[in-house]
Design a protein around this nucleic acid. Structure first.
Lengths: 334, 334
DNA sequence: TTGAAAGCGATACCAG
DNA sequence: CTGGTATCGCTTTCAA
């Protein structure tokens, strides 16, 4: 049978209240009693039941992390960095992949609410903010990461996507490219990137192509989506000299198709990706890409949500990190 | 304030016992009362507190998943497949990365025990089985996946690693290779693979090289470990014509170094990997590799642990899946 | 400094 | 069929 606080109390010849106090370092307890209680806990190998204590209003020390897809390297790396920080702070993370399906998002959220997680970290698409608002209304801490929602008041650790798109385009422009393709998902962050991208073009007085690709079908693999988009460019009759892909997986898909067509990256077509996941260094050629500070994001978002738990924030916080261009071998002067 | 079973009872003009019964479909309840209760729940937007019900002995519907590293594609893909099945069954997964550190394993396990997870799925190295035995002694369901422990009685979904090593070697042997290098981690599964590998060589009357590499330092990245091992082979004065790497990441590390040395894969050196993670199709050349049925494993292991919850098993179960050779472009006839 | 007792939200047994 | 009540393990007043 599981050993409870009662067993410890009996063993130490004190009341359960006293045991509770020594565990939580509350009230004033005599040195001797404290030691007796500790010895009893040791002896019985006592482990407090967090469920029971959570029932009385304390935290569950568990946080829900909602992401689109754990098998996507960007999100698994992000999840890992969040988990690391959580572990340091003695929290656990429940990870939920939504595949951008609202239905899954909703089911996960209500399941985790029932389990009384202390808060949510949201990295999913969430085009529908109702559910999020619901959480906020119920005073459940929510922090957004790697996604941004303008015009929506919420704590967030976000990336400056506009800047990312701008810098990526700038890099290509400086290399002399004028005819640049673009592949993206139809989500807010990617739309921001294209905005930056277009603004950069504008500064060079270059008209963007008419056929900028947004992927609609969110269920297919991103690599395949990259394949398809790149193929369209190759068959368009006006092959771009460079392509900006909104994440590394799309970029890789593009590279594959380009190579299959007998062309070379970067000699014939330059590619720049986004995210700088581990696979960017693995592919051939190593990918020039916009680096998201994944480690930093994980840490910041955990620290942010913890500070909310502690009630240290009544104001809304939005931490914006800037991406960095990492030059590798997939881009080249025209 | 949170709405509780008492609120529902009051709203529906019944006792909490009745409400509880209709929720759990227990006992016999009049059609009218049932409807009244349901209406009340709807109206108040009632969500049962799982903590409270877990306190009375019911399940928490939460499972702990202990893996070495969530950022490793094999484990993130495995985690994803487990999560998918868990979601179908209305379970949540708490993911913990241990980096093969016993200290982390222990901390995670005791944390999750306190949180009363229903069981553990272990995919970590666990060279030290004490902690596992402890769980078993306390009657906490444990299932091992993607790792095997011979001479240890436990439920497991394992891969036939011996067969995997055997097949990989066989493939190389059939292509005419005789001088084959080997790169592995120093964990049980990899030791099994080498056993199969050597047995295959034996059938061809080939003496294995003396310098088969086991990586000791588990903290470095696997790609880097692959780099280092492959470099040793290149500098050994007796360059192998093929290398069998015990996972895809190691294989990729080897490919990088070989290419940097001005050699070609597979023309100069053939490489076969292990796992068949998504990145195997992404690298250049696409990796010939032993495929672990990741989807299948995730499903089997979830179903296995659930069947243990249900008490459907008193006997020990060990499900062994066989890996498949997936031929791509990184191996070639000698 | 310590303890008795009331609750947290649900389950389950036993009456009626 | 329905309801009263003890119980799960812990926290938290409030007295002593």
């Amino acid at each position: 049978m599981k050993v409870t606080i009662y067993d410890v109390a009996k063993e130490a010849n004190v009341s359960i209240a006293t045991v509770s106090n020594v565990i939580n370092k509350k009230g004033r307890i005599g040195e001797k009693t404290r030691r007796r209680v500790h010895e009893a806990m040791e002896k019985l190998n006592y482990e407090p039941n967090i469920l029971a204590s959570a029932l009385t209003g304390k935290q569950t020390k568990t946080i829900g992390l909602i992401i689109p897809d754990l098998a996507n390297p960007f999100f698994s790396e992000l999840a890992r960095s969040i988990e690391d920080r959580a572990h340091e702070l003695s929290y656990n993370i429940v990870i939920c992949s939504t595949d951008y399906q609202e239905e899954k998002e909703n089911k996960y959220i209500s399941l985790l609410k029932q389990k009384r997680v202390d808060g949510f970290i949201l990295a999913s698409g969430f085009e529908n903010l109702e559910k999020v608002q619901e959480l906020l209304n119920e005073d459940i801490p929510v922090v957004i990461v790697a996604r941004d929602y303008p015009n929506f008041s919420i704590n967030a650790v976000a990336l400056d996507d506009y800047m990312g798109g701008y810098q990526a385009a700038n890099h290509l422009l400086q290399l002399g490219h004028k005819n640049i393709g673009f592949i993206a998902l139809d989500v807010y962050s990617n739309r921001e990137r294209i905005r930056g991208f277009k603004d950069a073009l504008k500064e060079y007085q270059i008209e963007p192509r008419k056929d900028l690709h947004f992927i609609e079908d969110k269920k297919q693999s991103l690599v395949r989506a990259g394949n398809i988009s790149a193929k369209k460019y190759l068959e368009s009759g006006d092959i771009p000299t460079a392509i900006f892909a909104c994440n590394d997986l799309l970029a890789i898909g593009a590279i594959q198709v380009i190579r299959d067509a007998g062309l070379n990256v970067p000699d014939d077509i330059s590619i720049v990706g986004f995210d700088n996941t581990n696979i960017a260094t693995i592919v051939d050629p190593p990918l020039t890409t916009m680096s998201q500070p994944i480690q930093r994001m994980g840490r910041e978002v955990m620290d942010l949500i913890i500070s909310i738990f502690k009630g240290e924030r009544d104001d809304e916080v939005r931490i914006t990190l800037v991406p960095d261009l990492v030059k590798r071998k997939s881009t080249k002067e025209l």
